[in-house]
Structure formats: C-alpha cells, structure tokens
Design a protein around this nucleic acid. Structure first.
Length: 504
RNA sequence: GGCCCCAUCGUCUAAUGGUUAGGACGUCAGGUUUUCAUCCUGGAAAUAGGGGUUCGAUUCCCCUUGGGGCUACCA
C-alpha cells in the first residue's frame, strides 16, 4: 500500500445528540494525526439532519472537548472556511438540486409505505428467518400512479439499489471488502419532511468539501455500498475509506453509558492531563516503531500512518491511563502543577462545604505558603489531579485524635517512645529554619539517629505518627518540611504528652 | 436469522515464513524506605481449535468456534 505524501482533507463529523464521547475523540485524534502526517486539513462538520435527536448544548461541548484535547481543525462552523456552511442543517438549499438530479436520473423512487406496514414486514422477515430489509413494494409502482399519490400522500424517497452484482471497495485499514448488491436495502435518502438522511447528506458534503479520505467508525462499513452507489449515480469519484475499529468497554461491547462516564470532558474533570490522554489514546489501535511508549503529540504525529491502525477493537483500560497520567503529572514543572492542581483542591473543599478555605478543625485560614508546599509534596503521589485535595489534608491539618499507642513502633515500648520523642523535641529546636527541607531533614535526622545510637524505625515511626496522626502517611521528612519548624515541635510535644498521660 | 468486520499474555500491543514469541499496564515475589506512595530487580502469564500450503507457520489459505457491528423516515 502506498503512503502518499499528498495533502489530505478529512473530516470529523459528529452529531450533536449529546455529550461528546471519548470514542469520538479517539476517532478525531486519528483524523488529526492523519492530517498532520500529510500536512493536510481537518474539517469539522456538524451532522444535524435529525432534528428529533438534536441537543442544543452539545455542539458547544464538542468544540470545548476538541479544544481541551488540543485537536485543532482548519475549517468548521466556528471558524468558517471556503466550503461552508459546516452544519448540515444549514445546507438544505445545497442538497435540493442534487435530489432533483437523482430523481431525473431515476436513482430515487417514492415510497408510500406506512410505518405499520414496514414493521409488519420486518417482523415477518424475522419470523421466516429471511434477510431483513425493505421489500421494494413501491419500487414497482407505475410512474403515473406514483406521481398522483405524491400529491395526496406523504412519502419518502428511496435509493434504487442495483439488484445484481457486487459492491467492492478497498478499505485503507481492512483491505478489500465486498457486498452482494441484492442484499443491500433501498435506503431512505429523503425523509417525508423533505430533509435528506445522513446517507445522502454525507455523500454530497464529502464530495463538495473535497474530502480525500473518510475516516470513520466500523459501524459504517455496511452502509458504504449505499454511499458508493450514490457516488456512481452522481458520477463522482469516491474518497478513500478507512474504517477504524470501535473502542470497546471492559465487556468488549461498544462503549456506552453502562461503562461509566466516558464523556470526553469527564476526563478533564477527573484530573487527567490532555497530553496523557492523547498519548494513551494514540496507543489504542496504533503503535510506534520502538518500545518507547511515552510520546509527545509531536512525536506521535511524525510517526503516525493511517494504514498502521489496527482492524481489531481495543478495550479502554483505565488502569494504564491512570498510570500514564501519573507519569505526566510527575513530569510537570512545579508552578505549572500548582496552577493545574489548585482548582481541584478548591473544588474538593467547596464540595465539602468549606467555602472559606479554612482548616476544618482549627478554623484557621489556609496560608498560600502552606498550600503550595503541600501541593509540591504530593505531586509525585498522584495519578489524577482530583486526588489532590485528599492527598494534602495530612499536610494541611494533621490528625490529633489518634490513639497514643499508635506512636509506639514495632518492638518498642511506651517508655522508650516517650524518651525518643523528648530527645526529638529537643533536637528539632536546634535545626535551623532554613534546613527544614525534605532533603536536609532526612540527612540531619539520620545523622542524629546514628550519633545517638537510636533505632531507625524506633525513631522515625513515632516522629511520623506525631506529624500525621495516621498509621499510613508520607514520610516524616516531607511532613516536617511542609509544616515547618514550630509546628513540627508542637506536634512532637503533643505526641509526647499524649503518650505520657496514658502511661504514668 | 441475514450480511459484514475481527481474533498474540487479564488489558494495550511487538514480531508479516525461521525469535528462548519481545515491551508496557496490571499482578506476584524480592530490594530501597519506620508506614504508604515512588523507585529498582526478578517471576508467572498469550499465538482460540482443526485442517491445509511449506523444509519450516503467530505470520498465507479454508473450516469451526468465539467476539463485535449493521440490519430505522438515528447518525
């Protein structure tokens, strides 16, 4: 298969029927990558011919999602272009003459069958285990009779599919695919309200917008012969088709509501980074040459080839995405991390009813310094940004309602622990304020332990519990460096008193 | 039911006639760490089954099985 260096035009054609889905974004990404690799153009076209399913806010959400994921386009309803309008609902006047052309060519025929008759027909076909599809009842109606009825009865316009031969096309991803024409339905192309269906609009638009490659989900494979019949009827050159697989849920079925919230924007709201999303999504159904998987969007687009995309559907596995997101969070420059994480912290506080940004127990206002230090301390512990709020609580306001016994390290005693805490309390006083960094504290305290011939665990465990109040927490060095000298000493004093009062 | 697509570790995938079938996530076991997380090392883990073609099949062909999609005046 030849890889052309010719500029490609492809389109992202979502229907505004709800919140954009991660599966749609995946396809948009493939389209974007393909266009980038050929220095071509990506067109966004809104496919809104079905007025019944139209959801007004969804178009806005589509662009919001594309923007967040950094999938840029060259033409669309938001930015215009030479081939507009880019909403099918605004193109009715454009479709009209083409519908007339097809009528004249005899490619269309009116059908007066009622919904009831069609339903009965289908049930009968199912019952007799015959192929389902329109039985072409109206196709053989005499022309005169049809014309007369068109004035008095509602009707649709159907495609007069050839009843013999094969429809074959070379799919860019799957190779040759062919269908027996006789089995293909006489698709409705114009609804009784005069609007074209998707099948007609898509062919006219792709032709008029000079689309060179149609990249779409594999659910469209079986309607491709209908589209091909239309290209032939118009005597137009069809585009190249590339049917990409569906992204699957954990049960291997098409992604849907029951697989959880997989709307494109929900990943933003849960604290995934767009760069991690793009990296992860690109690895679904495509693979770089080497073994390196952590790749920038730039690196991916340089290596990407449409024909290398898999034919098999991939399961969307969030575990790996979370891991990858964690890697990207870790790699963030500190100030950038703070900037990104802060909104999530505020959000989680507000969610808990804490609008004043104060510490819940003491009621003290959280200082910016403490907040920033805490954030940086947890940066490499996170897989999603929305975990930040929970992760920093130990730093912001350690628990003091813990049981004194928790301070006692394994194989140690209350008496020893009290003694250790007292030594620590005294020693921490001597450490300069400027040495209260994680690295320095670790160095200094380890030296202290060695010098005093103390046990590492017997010293660090009670220190850590004193600073966190919890059995599981970040290291004492991290904790002490964030809360600072005075608070560290206070916590040790409190711990020592707590244990002493219980063991007098 | 009919038509079409698909098939390598649990998951994402590499290897397109000759490899001890490789990597990543996850998992398990060690190590680092007082704990958790991180990090490091190691292990277990796959060519769905059956026929061909071939000196030789993960790789090419056929059948079976399994999974998926479509089967609307939705896209």
């Amino acid at each position: 298969m030849s890889t052309s260096n010719q500029k490609e035009r492809t389109r992202f054609a979502p229907s505004p029927t709800g919140m954009p889905h991660i599966g749609s974004i995946w396809i948009a990404l493939l389209q974007w990558l393909h266009v980038k690799s050929t220095r071509g153009e990506l067109i966004v076209r809104i496919e809104d011919t079905d007025r019944n399913r139209f959801v007004p806010e969804s178009e806005k959400a589509i662009f919001e999602a594309l923007n967040w994921y950094g999938i840029t386009h060259d033409e669309g309803p938001d930015i215009g272009g030479a081939f507009g309008p880019y909403r099918q609902s605004e193109r009715l006047a454009i479709y009209k003459p083409y519908i007339e052309e097809l009528k004249e060519k005899g490619t269309l025929y009116p059908c007066f069958c009622t919904a009831e008759r069609l339903q009965e027909m289908r049930e009968g076909q199912q019952r007799d285990k015959k192929p389902t599809g329109y039985d072409r009842y109206c196709r053989s109606l005499p022309l005169a009779e049809a014309k007369k009825k068109m004035n008095t009865e509602p009707y649709v316009l159907r495609l007069k599919m050839p009843t013999e031969g094969e429809s074959t096309f070379a799919d860019k991803i799957r190779g040759e695919i062919s269908f027996s024409n006789a089995l293909i339905d006489d698709q409705v192309l114009v609804k009784s309200d005069g609007w074209p269906t998707y099948h007609l609009a898509v062919v006219i638009d792709d032709h008029l917008m000079e689309i060179t490659t149609v990249i779409r989900g594999e659910e469209w494979i079986s309607s491709t012969p209908k589209h091909l019949a239309l290209y032939k009827a118009f005597d137009w050159q069809p585009p190249v088709f590339a049917h990409v697989p569906l992204i699957l849920g954990t049960d291997r079925s098409k992604l849907s509501k029951r697989h959880g919230d997989l709307s494109a924007l929900s990943f933003r709201d849960r604290g995934f980074l767009p760069e991690a999303m793009i990296n992860f999504l690109a690895l679904l159904g495509w693979h770089p040459k080497g073994e390196k998987e952590m790749l920038t969007r730039q690196q991916i687009s340089e290596e990407f080839r449409l024909e290398d995309v898999h034919a098999a559907g991939a399961i969307f596995n969030e575990e790996k995405l979370r891991w990858m997101n964690g890697q990207y969070i870790k790699a963030l420059p500190p100030q950038r991390f703070i900037q990104l994480a802060l909104p999530f912290v505020l959000q989680s506080m507000v969610a808990k009813g804490n609008r004043e940004m104060v510490l819940p127990v003491s009621g003290k206002k959280i200082s910016n310094g403490l907040l920033e230090k805490s954030l940086l301390a947890v940066q490499n512990r996170l897989q999603q940004l929305d975990e930040t709020g929970a992760a920093i609580t130990t730093y912001l306001e350690p628990k003091d309602d813990y049981a004194g016994e928790l301070l006692i390290a394994k194989k140690s005693t209350a008496v020893n622990t009290i003694e250790t805490l007292k030594m620590l309390e005294e020693y921490m006083q001597t450490i300069a304020e400027s040495d209260y960094t994680e690295e320095m504290l670790e160095k200094i305290l380890r030296q202290f332990i060695t010098d005093k011939k103390l046990g590492v665990g017997e010293t660090l465990w009670p220190l850590r519990v004193a600073l966190s109040g919890e059995a599981v927490s970040p290291s004492p060095f991290s904790l002490a460096s964030v809360v600072g000298k005075q608070e560290t000493i206070n916590r040790i004093t409190l711990a020592s008193q707590k244990l002493s009062s219980q063991h007098e």
